[in-house]
C-alpha cells in the first residue's frame, strides 16, 4: 500500500451528530414561534430577530478573532441560537440599538468572558435580556398591541401583558374575578392575542417547537415538564386555597415567558444539569422561584430570574447528583 493507513483508538464509528446540527435543530424548532411573531407584529419582529441574530454572530466573531485571538466558532450555531432567544424575549418595539446592546452583553459578558461555548454558567440570552430589562425598564415593558404588519411602533399604544394586569390588579387590591374580566381568555393566550414579548406570546407555536425538539431528541422532557408541573401544582394549590387572590394554573402556564423559558432557555445544554435527576430538581427549582416572583415579588414575570438563579446551582447539582451506577444497588 502506498498510502498511509490511519490508526486510532476505538470506537471507529461516530453517530454523525454535531454541535452545529443540534443548534440547527433548535433554530428549526423556533421557526413556528417566529412565524407567529411575524404574523402578530409584522416587520418589527423580523427586524428585531434579524438584528439580534446577526449582531450576536458578529460580536462572537469579533471577540474571538480580535480579543481572544483564537479560532472563530460562529459556524457551530450557538451564537445564532442565543440571538434568536434574546430577540424572542424582547418586546417587538425594542429599538435596534438596544437589541445590539443586549446582544453584546449576551455574547460578550454572558458567554465569551467565561471562555466561550461550554464554559458559561449562565444562559447568555437571559443575561442579555435581564441586562436590558434592568437598564431600560420603560422600553422593555411597553408591549405593542399585536396587529400584524400594521403594528405601530411610533404611537405608544401598548397593551399590558396578562401577568401585568394581574399584578397591577392585585396591587390596587381588586378582586380576582374583576381582574379576570380584563384578561384575555385562555384560548387567546394560547394563540398569542395579548401583549408580550415577540416570541413568547403564542403558546401553541412554542409547544410545536417543543414537540420537534423531543422527536429529534435534542432535549429530554425532564426540565420543561418538571418546570411546568411545578408551576401548575404550586399555582393550583394557591388557587384552590384562595381563588379570589390567585389566578388559575392554566393562566399561569400559558402566559408570560414561561413556555419559551422552560422549553428553550432552561434546557440550554451548557447551563443545565447533566443527569435526569438533576434536571428534575433544576426544573422544580425554576418552577417554584417563578411562581414566588410572580405572586409575591415586585416583577410580574419571574422565569428569567428563576432560570438564572437555578443556573448558579447547576455545578452544585452536577457534583451531588450522580446517575445511578450500574451494579450500585447490590454494593450498598
Amino acid at each position: 500500500m502506498n498510502k498511509l493507513i490511519t490508526v486510532s483508538p476505538s470506537p471507529h464509528m461516530h453517530s454523525g451528530q454535531s454541535t452545529s446540527k443540534l443548534m440547527t435543530h433548535v433554530l428549526i424548532a423556533l421557526i413556528p414561534a417566529f412565524a407567529a411573531s411575524v404574523w402578530l407584529f409584522g416587520w418589527s419582529s423580523i427586524i428585531v430577530v434579524s438584528v439580534a441574530v446577526s449582531s450576536c454572530l458578529i460580536f462572537e466573531f469579533l471577540i474571538q478573532k480580535f480579543l481572544l485571538k483564537k479560532e472563530t466558532s460562529i459556524s457551530d450555531g450557538s451564537a445564532a441560537v442565543t440571538g434568536a432567544l434574546l430577540a424572542f424575549s424582547l418586546p417587538a418595539s425594542t429599538p435596534i440599538g438596544m437589541v445590539m446592546i443586549g446582544s453584546l452583553v449576551a455574547i460578550g459578558i454572558g458567554k465569551m468572558s467565561f471562555g466561550g461555548l461550554g464554559n458559561n454558567p449562565f444562559n447568555p440570552a437571559l443575561v442579555g435580556r435581564v441586562f436590558l430589562f434592568i437598564s431600560f425598564p420603560v422600553q422593555m415593558t411597553s408591549w405593542p398591541i399585536p396587529k400584524g404588519f400594521e403594528t405601530s411602533l411610533v404611537d405608544a399604544i401598548t397593551a399590558p401583558t396578562p401577568l401585568e394586569i394581574v399584578k397591577e390588579g392585585m396591587r390596587i387590591s381588586e378582586n380576582m374575578s374583576s381582574v379576570v374580566s380584563n384578561l384575555p381568555s385562555n384560548m387567546e393566550v394560547f394563540c398569542g392575542k395579548m401583549g408580550g414579548s415577540l416570541g413568547e406570546i403564542a403558546a401553541c407555536t412554542i409547544l410545536a417547537g417543543f414537540l420537534y425538539l423531543l422527536i429529534t431528541r435534542v432535549i429530554s422532557w425532564h426540565i420543561p415538564v418538571s418546570i411546568l408541573t411545578t408551576v401548575a401544582v404550586f399555582t393550583g394549590i394557591m388557587w384552590l386555597i384562595d381563588p379570589t387572590a390567585n389566578a388559575n394554573p392554566g393562566f399561569h402556564l400559558l402566559s408570560g415567558g414561561l413556555l419559551l423559558g422552560s422549553i428553550f432557555m432552561a434546557t440550554d445544554y451548557v447551563t443545565s444539569p447533566m443527569t435526569h435527576k438533576g434536571m428534575i430538581i433544576f426544573g422544580v427549582g425554576i418552577g417554584l422561584i417563578t411562581v414566588i416572583i410572580r405572586r409575591f415579588g415586585a416583577y410580574p414575570e419571574g422565569i428569567q430570574f428563576a432560570i438564572l438563579i437555578m443556573n448558579a446551582f447547576v455545578p452544585l447539582i452536577n457534583s451531588y447528583l450522580k446517575p445511578k451506577r450500574f451494579g450500585e444497588m447490590i454494593n450498598e
Binding site: S18, L22, D76, T275
Partner: peptide, 30 residues
C-alpha cells in the same frame, strides 16, 4: 476495511455539556 473518509475523526469542539454521553453510558458513568 473502513473507507478513508470515514476513518478520520472530526474536529474536536468544546464540550457543551449536552449530557448525551451520560444518557448512553450503559454503566451509569459520566
Amino acid at each position: 476495511l473502513i473507507p478513508d473518509k470515514e476513518s478520520r475523526r472530526k474536529k474536536i469542539d468544546p464540550c457543551i455539556r449536552c449530557s448525551k454521553c451520560i444518557t448512553v453510558c450503559p454503566m451509569g458513568l459520566e
